[in-house]
Design a protein around this nucleic acid. Structure first.
Lengths: 347, 347
DNA sequence: CGCCTCGTTGCATGCGGATGCAATGTCGGT
DNA sequence: ACCGACATTGCATCCGCATGCAACGAGGCG
């Protein structure tokens, strides 16, 4: 595995610093520990010697003895979910604030997950944020390894797993109500991919609200969360039905595809007649070409909550799993004219 | 720092596996090493005992002795450069193929870089891919710490740093020529932010090609690579000058903003008259609403090259730094009607 | 049958740093 | 002047695994 691990000039160790500062190795260790029992005078001497030698403590050696790696695993499906980058950055930032680093694991396919988990155990991560739904077996593996796990927009299968999620059902409900109040009665739906829990929840929220409003069952077609599938979804819907008032798309990328397709297929269409809404709050929705009405996930707050829950569990392993749900924010837009938030809603 | 590192049921170690398999700890270590001196029979026994105990070797302890952490640092500016997610995924994948994991470091501001680098040394990463230009001092720090560094679209300041970059100058040159051949004579430029090397190179490429074609100096305004700044850039250009034939934007996000602004400011404008081009090959450029002409960076190949170079240097620290430059691919689009690639160009 | 070779195996050690414990020094109180 | 309390410091050990070295046994060969 390691071919030529040799380093030209080996890195300074705590012993080197100790020798240079005329103290013992333990003094060096204590100097780098915020509440180490050491005099200010000695600490200064040590730190200055350390600086001279370009010394930084070896986190790996430290982890070996403290049993804390200060590494957090971030598991992402390789899908380019548009808000993943923002999420990853936010989680990295939150972890940095708590003194930990993020180790990135991405996978294309569930079949890679087993190997991925082995890598995770190997690296002794203190905890994991996974942006996907895992199988029961995978969740049990976390339990067996005593690695705290927080799912981000994933459905926990077992009691011991924490989760942070947006309230997909409530959010879609609010969207449907907004469209309904704006006069829409005949709905189409571009749903997400089959296997996805998020996709199921969103369709669920749509259908439930429509039942509550005594609306007939909508046309539903299935996309895969990409722009292109939104384009195709819209074509399919319009091929099957004329006279739709509104199309609810399971995410913003598909909504933008649907919007473009609508303009493209029927350039002269009465735009007032067809409303299109998305979900997520993806930056491009605010571009001049779109002005997409959607529900925005409070990504920053959700990321912070995920990291909070994770660290609480890391500091106290006995702590029970925790679930937190966030309400999405309604973002009005010209893609759904006249649609407005509930009176009681959305700050 | 570490509050309650206690684990409920401590993880199995190689000693536990050894005891369970009735062999010595070294045998366990050898069983997990591809070319360890061990009989097939013993290896089977060890691996089966390991499976029974959910044992995975501790990568941190291993790294301590092999002096290879199998960790690669990935340094990203927090800017949401649109192709960063793709790049990060690609680099993660390439590292995984070589048995390494990616440790994510993001920063908002150059002032955070010093602290960031200390973190990097602490974690004993085997190498770093940085998507930014660093200062001479920072590069020297890598050299002092003997950590191989590859810049991705950044300008190396010292001889010892490797780099992978798209040929910004050549790419912009090709764009300008394409526009020129399509008849454009009066150009505007929406440049990138002041501090950025990439921004400088791109403007450079544009101006050089225009000089070569004996074109007068273009109007230049400066943006910050965001969609919004493209919108503002276009407004500014049109306020200062009428009768532009073409606008060259330093990246795709700004180009899309400019396109939208052009349509919005002058809804009835003769679209044939004003061409707009970008740079990068950002997914949204292919959306129906845009069809943006641009130069696409071969991100996959560049990521692979970066990781290749990095690992070559890790395996052989004596190896000299290496620079590789990639040609961007011309992507025609309706945003620049009639513009076509050079005869000799682009596969 | 003795000796050497080679494939396995275990032993002992060390990677770099954290920490319990004992040793030392300092200072205040009586 | 003596004793105890407290603040610093160093010593020794251990974290989990990799690896050089010696030991061992099985064959091959002369």
């Amino acid at each position: 595995m390691a071919k030529k691990p040799r380093e030209l000039r080996p890195r300074a160790t705590s012993y080197d610093v100790a020798a240079s500062a005329g103290v013992s190795q333990s003094a060096v260790s204590r100097a780098f520990s915020p509440d180490g029992s050491i005099s200010e005078e000695t600490r200064r001497r040590v730190l200055s010697a350390a600086r001279a030698l370009n010394y930084q403590p070896n986190a790996l050696a430290r982890s070996l003895i403290t049993r804390r790696s200060n590494l957090i695993g971030l598991v992402l499906a390789n899908a380019t979910n548009a808000y993943y980058p923002e999420l990853a950055m936010e989680i990295t930032r939150q972890c940095a604030l708590r003194g930990s680093r993020v180790l990135l694991f991405s996978f294309l396919d569930a079949s890679e997950l087993n190997a991925l988990l082995d890598q995770i155990w190997t690296y002794q991560v203190d905890g994991v944020v996974a942006c996907t739904t895992l199988s029961k077996a995978h969740e049990r593996a976390f339990e067996e390894q005593n690695v705290p796990l927080v799912l981000y927009n994933g459905a926990p299968e077992t009691r011991h797993v924490s989760a942070v999620s947006v309230d997909h059902v409530e959010g879609e409900g609010r969207l449907v109500r907004a469209l309904w109040r704006a006069g829409a009665r005949r709905f189409g739906v571009i749903a997400g991919p089959e296997g996805s829990w998020v996709a199921r929840m969103r369709v669920d929220g749509i259908l439930r609200q429509m039942q509550a409003l005594d609306l007939p069952a909508p046309q539903i077609v299935r996309g895969d969360y990409t722009y292109q599938s939104g384009v195709e979804g819209l074509r399919q819907l319009l091929a099957e039905t004329v006279d739709l008032d509104a199309i609810v798309c399971a995410n913003d990328a598909m909504a933008l595809g649907a919007l473009d397709a609508a303009r493209h297929c029927r350039p002269m269409m009465d735009e007032d007649r067809l409303s299109i809404v998305g979900f997520d709050g993806f930056g491009a929705g605010r571009w001049l070409a779109y002005d997409l009405a959607t529900m925005r996930q409070p990504v920053e707050r959700m990321a912070e909550a995920a990291v909070d829950i994770l660290f609480a569990r890391i500091e106290d392993p006995e702590r029970p799993a925790e679930r937190r749900t966030f309400l999405a924010d309604f973002v009005p837009g010209a893609s759904a004219p006249r649609a407005a938030a509930d009176q009681d809603g959305d700050d």
